[in-house]
Design a protein around this nucleic acid. Structure first.
Lengths: 116, 116
DNA sequence: GCAACTGTTCTAGTATTGCTATAACAGTTG
DNA sequence: CAACTGTTATAGCAATACTAGAACAGTTGC
């Protein structure tokens, strides 16, 4: 379980951590029942604050993607299934967007706006 | 040409303005050669500051979607064509995501992460 | 039971960001 | 020339992102 983050990005670190987990769940690298590394572990290896990682984990919990309890850690739930189902479609769309020269921000913003 | 914004949203106003224009371009409601309403007009009707709208317009310019010159205003460029080409795919993906119960933020973040 | 782990909560400080406010400047158009 | 357009500059305020340190409270395994 590897969580990647780009410190130079304008995207908040906590959002990048959550996004990394989400992508792993969508691609099947992370399955229901799997446990995320402890927040302290992640914070240490990314050299960021514990609270920053916890903020990401809490966002994932709010989305229902993980189940959190003290002492146990954060465990992936069945709610990741929809993400996995969309994975191929998302990859296909991203490939088309990339071929057309769009930026990640542009495509993401377009998707978000279309959702409204 | 109508630009909608949700003041209660946690998404910055300037990002919402840019997203609104992007969506209009993608759907074909806005075509190459069309002129955006002046920043002062939009600021006035949305009851926000001029600079907030200009920030949105400048983002669109950075993406190449509009051409800006003082005195003339912001004009939509041919670069919106890729957006229009993706429109149907984006709508289809959003529909699937909605049916699966995903939130706009979750899907947008997933798309953005998949792009990396 | 106890030690070592886990998330939870609290307080607090700093730097950055989003937005506002005013004003002046400089091209473009009719 | 007048009325429009975006551009630039300065300044201030509120909220956000991140950090820091500490204590608390369940869970697990020896």
């Amino acid at each position: 379980m590897l969580i990647r983050v780009d410190p130079a990005s304008d995207v908040p670190i906590f959002a990048q951590v959550a996004a990394s987990v989400r992508a792993d769940a969508a691609s099947g690298r992370l399955r229901p029942g799997d446990r995320l590394p402890s927040a302290r572990e992640v914070a240490s290896s990314l050299e960021v604050n514990l609270h920053t990682v916890l903020r990401a984990y809490q966002d994932l919990r709010d989305e229902g993607l993980v189940d959190m309890r003290r002492g146990r850690g954060a465990v992936v739930t069945d709610a990741v299934a929809p993400l996995a189902q969309l994975h191929d479609d998302v990859v296909a769309l991203v490939e088309r967007a990339r071929a057309l020269g769009l930026s990640p921000d542009t495509l993401a913003a377009l998707v978000k706006e279309t959702f409204r």
